[in-house]
């Protein structure tokens, strides 16, 4: 059965930044299977097409939501939807962050830009069970303070350490300035017993994972989220290949031991 989108109603629409919007979605009829943090859906905008979007909120905690940055015809269309509009959704697809193995260990979340959105349900999951995990730290880098998403939540999350840094501060900014890797030295974690979860632009992922590995976090405990062109999400179209991986099937979340050799080859 070729996967056909399932109609979902936009029940809430929030503008996060000048370029991003978060849509909360509820099924019109039949519901999709439960998404795990890190997984993605193919989201259809009527008459424009489909794009892969990871979930920024899952059914279990707060309802299904996607945080969308308008960068093309489909994402522009999705960002322009209004409450009451219908979009199509199919999924869940791909691998998830997998918080379970991190039980009893420190959890280090590193996000670049809108990369915080796919990590959000993971953070909520870890914070919902404080006794189950060691120290939970959230490090976020953004271009400017105005580009930060989940800004209020960031202040409320009961983490061991939350660090936010921007490349370009504005006049009202009194926080950190610099790259997100700089915050790694300030987060409390024991490299031998830490699971790290990294999402953002690929160079930021590479720099962060390299730094973490150098600090002694084993590469297989550094989980990163990859992005490649996905057209079908079912492993049939070939577009999202990254060497041996079909990112829609074997990713998007993979261990750094797998990603590192692939991301080090240009134009792979």
């Amino acid at each position: 059965m070729t996967a056909v989108p399932v109609p979902h109603l936009v029940v809430d629409r929030r503008r996060d930044t000048a370029e991003t919007v978060t849509l909360r979605l509820e099924p019109v009829g039949e519901a999709l299977a439960e998404f795990a943090p890190g997984q993605f859906a193919m989201v259809h905008c009527f008459g424009r097409g489909e794009i892969p979007l990871s979930v920024s909120s899952v059914q279990g905690t707060g309802g299904l939501a996607h945080t969308i940055r308008s960068v093309g015809a489909v994402s522009d269309g999705l960002c322009a939807t209004r409450v009451g509009d219908v979009v199509g959704l199919r999924g869940p697809y791909g691998t998830s962050w997998e918080l379970e193995p991190a039980r009893g260990q420190d959890v280090l979340v590193v996000a670049g830009g809108i990369g915080l959105a796919p990590l959000r349900p993971l953070i909520l999951g870890a914070l919902a069970e404080p006794e189950a995990y060691g120290r939970v730290s959230v490090l976020v880098g953004a271009r400017t303070p105005a580009d930060l998403i989940s800004r209020e939540e960031l202040e409320q999350w009961a983490t061991a350490y939350t660090g936010v840094t921007v490349d370009w501060p504005d006049t009202g900014w009194h926080g950190d300035v610099g790259v997100v890797t700089q915050l790694l030295g300030r987060a409390p974690f024991d490299p031998d017993r830490t699971w790290a979860f990294v999402c953002g632009p690929e160079p930021m992922i590479r720099a962060t994972a390299r730094d973490l590995a150098q600090r002694g976090v084993p590469p297989e405990r550094i989980r990163v989220s990859l992005e490649r062109n996905m057209r079908c999400a079912t492993g049939h179209c070939g577009h999202c290949q990254l060497g041996p991986l079909l990112v829609c099937r074997d990713g998007p979340v993979v261990g750094w031991e797998q990603a590192q050799p692939l991301l080090s080859v240009r134009e792979l």
Binding site: M1, T2, V4, P5, P7, V28, H44, F46, V86, G88
Partner: peptide, 18 residues
């Protein structure tokens, strides 16, 4: 063709698999 979709004037959308 994989599927088609139709929208009613009220905004209801239905998807039909091929």
């Amino acid at each position: 063709r994989l599927w088609s979709a139709d929208r009613t004037p009220e905004g209801h959308v239905s998807f039909t698999p091929e």
